[in-house]
Write a protein that binds this DNA or RNA. Sequence first.
DNA 1: CGACCATTTGATATGGATCAAGCGATGTGG
DNA 2: CCACATCGCTTGATCCATATCAAATGGTCG
Lengths: 233, 233
Amino acid sequence: MIAHTTIRTSVPLTRSAAPVASRALHPASEHEPLAETIHLMGTIMSYPRNSEIFGENEAADYLYKVVSGGVRTYKILSDGRRQIGGFYMPGDIFGLEFADEHTCSAEAIADAKVLVIKRSALTALAGRDAGVARELFALTARELRRVQERVLLLIKSAQQRVASFLLEMAERGLAGNAIELQMSRQDIADYLGLTIETVSRTLTSLESCAAIEVPSSRRIVLRNRSALNRMNG
Amino acid sequence: MIAHTTIRTSVPLTRSAAPVASRALHPASEHEPLAETIHLMGTIMSYPRNSEIFGENEAADYLYKVVSGGVRTYKILSDGRRQIGGFYMPGDIFGLEFADEHTCSAEAIADAKVLVIKRSALTALAGRDAGVARELFALTARELRRVQERVLLLIKSAQQRVASFLLEMAERGLAGNAIELQMSRQDIADYLGLTIETVSRTLTSLESCAAIEVPSSRRIVLRNRSALNRMNG
DNA sequence: CGACCATTTGATATGGATCAAGCGATGTGG
DNA sequence: CCACATCGCTTGATCCATATCAAATGGTCG
């Protein structure tokens, strides 16, 4: 049903590029100790478009932070459908699990650079540094909130789902009213629990009622945010 | 659309029944320090059927643990529909928020006794006791997992949703193959993102294919678990 | 240019919603 | 104790949003 290029990229073994940030190492109780520490502890890995970053049921030994490009997490259902759990953009952290194994797979939606951190190192650090622990907790809480929003989204109409999606992307992309989508229509459909045809039709319908403009399939301009917000429900 | 008896029960002010457990108080690093501590710190409150325990946007100053009866959390959507976030049975903890305000409301689905604990006391304790902190974290992680399951459920067919629901209830109720439902059909519908009619029809259809028996509307016997599991997807 | 893939558009089917009525419990007043 | 209203649930008829199947279009790369 869905073609997956599964260029399996193995778990990182070598340390590649040097970390960027160069602030004080000592974590203590700074504002966001995690961001810095993570860069000092991690390794930057490159993943080509559509390659797997980790697979469901693999050992969850690492935590990931998107440096560039984008990532999708997903599950394949027994009937062959794919449910996308989330899209992760530069700055976002993913792969945070609370079991020994990943509960979903992750792939690059575009060529991506990802900072990879050993989970054991991080949890050890969290044990010593309450700030890091708090941040990990906050991260989890945010993820929980995000998923709860998804539940609310999935009981809405197709139009509402697509409108919500566009607003979410605009918010996260923060490039004014223009959105540069990294993901395909199929990705969007699998994220929203719709078919690709319905997503496409909904976009054209939104365009014809002047709420958006679709100059190219990956580029969408929000023309009437309040209308989108209104139909968002 | 949905009749809600909103007998508003105010936030606990008085300490009522004494805690049951009588093990050592000192939390230190026991197996499950939370369960005990919570009983020592909390107050047991009674909520009549359909009364509100807390409302959306209220200050999230307390954490709750069901002692008897049952609880539903929910959100009212702008179109008037209600989405039930979860059902909580004796032993379950709810009201765990990571913001200052509750993001959903909670009501008793049947006359309920609920242990109420001041959140500030608990977080203070978590600061001192790593075991408690870990348990709070685990609780959040479990909630996250639960919600992720819901997302997967909501993209399935009505039959699959109802089958999953029955299996979940059987698991949590652990009374063999018989389920004593505390909640109404409307509650189930709002939990599964279906209408009451569809839930009802699906149950009769499951009954007619011998997967279940419905001796009375609140009592359901699982006759063929593997069939349910199979259609669960 | 031609092959291929992603996307759009069109025609039809269908699962679940909606509207409407019937049915069985439970409770109330006479 | 019975007539009757009420409430929660089931059943029936119809409608509609979205899925499904199918084809056309457009963009990209060799």
